[in-house]
Nucleic acid binder design. Structure first.
Lengths: 212, 212
DNA sequence: GCGCGAATTCGCACTGAGTGCGATATCAAA
DNA sequence: TTTGATATCGCACTCAGTGCGAATTCGCGC
């Protein structure tokens, strides 16, 4: 468990002892949960088991997480999501928003392929609701991305940027899918996510206009 | 409740008395459920209430639906989903797959705007998991669409068609969003879904290539 | 018509997630 | 040191969903 642990939004203040303990506890729950999920599966792991293993009362669990699913969801693209906004703000504005997003995602995907997030991703496919909630998180990401784009390209229409964000995140989603299949088929010679993403963006360029 | 009710996959056979009863019961549960959801909200409606109102035992409910959510989900784009495949197979192949999908969706959205499906859509936004599962259903639609495209354009690469399907369903999703906002803001002068969809596709054409 | 096998309906008891309430403990700051 | 907010916990409760098996109904071949 050496990778970026999920953490609550840091309000950018010098944190006291209390805040630190809080973060540590949440982090311990998240790590314990992920470990137990990996060992016994998501559904077979009860809340009591997580609470016990994390050294807290069952009731306290719900002080930190709204549901069992949220523990796993906290790992979904952990770090990645938070990094997109800042990364996009670094991009030069002399390119299209979509091109900027493409560049960002290619850079970030090359970095964020941690053991924990990959394991979480596998678990995320074990249940219908988990799969669904992962998709919902990607749509949230999409909306956030459009929001950041609107700051960076204030002259562009919001709907246009929303579409650009949809394309970028959609490409990311399909690339992840291809990447997973690639790994399942050729565990050894599988290419990294970034390459799949590049290929998907290339296909994207040849698809439009929709009236051709 | 005069609109297309959700029904299990019809295996295209002359159905006996048993099959008919089965369909009727499932339909009654779906309609009762939707009605109670509309009256009291999704979470406030218990399974016991649905079962009682539908005239079945609680246990029998689970013979027809896997979960409470599935009752509502059955209404999500009811009829629409099933119509896409056949409609796409009607399209001439001298246009691009994306153009064909665009044409299909524009035609279908003009038709499927029933009271029930709109009501279901509102309910679908009342809970996080419901919202998530709706998105999951759209991704399923996306996959199906790509599958049908592969039949109709066998010379095209599967990945390319997968991207095309992503674009089409993504546009549909964004158009639905715009449409909902439009209705919320101007309940009277709101434009139909098909128009929003057309606009979204127009924006789509101007977004790529991603390297511009 | 008769009866066999499958489909359907149902009851009961059980697990486990999630909530409401309130009591207690801990910590930060005045 | 007091005080108020934060954190921890236990208890009892509701409700979704499952396992099991009994009872019923129905389609169909004989």
């Amino acid at each position: 468990m050496d990778t970026a642990p999920p953490s609550p939004a840091t309000p950018g203040k010098t944190e006291g002892l209390r805040d630190r303990k809080r973060r540590e506890t949440m982090q311990r729950i998240a790590e314990t949960g992920l470990r137990l999920f990996m060992e016994n599966g998501f559904e077979a792991t009860t809340l009591d088991a997580i609470a016990a293993a994390a050294g807290i009362a069952r009731r306290t669990f719900f002080y930190y997480f709204k549901s069992k699913e949220d523990v796993l969801l906290a790992w979904q693209g952990s770090g990645f999501v938070e990094a997109i906004g800042p990364a996009l703000l670094q991009e030069p504005t002399d390119q299209s928003p979509l091109a900027a997003a493409r560049h960002c995602l290619l850079t970030l995907t090359a970095r964020f392929e941690t053991k924990a997030s990959i394991a979480a991703d596998t678990l995320l496919r074990s249940t219908e609701t988990l799969r669904a909630r992962k998709l919902a998180k990607m749509v949230d990401m999409e909306r956030d991305l459009a929001q950041v784009m609107a700051e960076r390209w204030p002259d562009r229409a919001a709907e246009e940027l929303r579409v650009a964000a949809m394309l970028a995140i959609g490409a990311l989603r399909l690339a992840q899918e291809e990447w997973r299949l690639d790994h399942a088929a050729h565990p050894d010679t599988a290419r990294p996510l970034a390459e799949h993403l590049k290929a998907t963006f290339a296909l994207l360029d040849r698809q439009v206009p929709s009236t051709a």
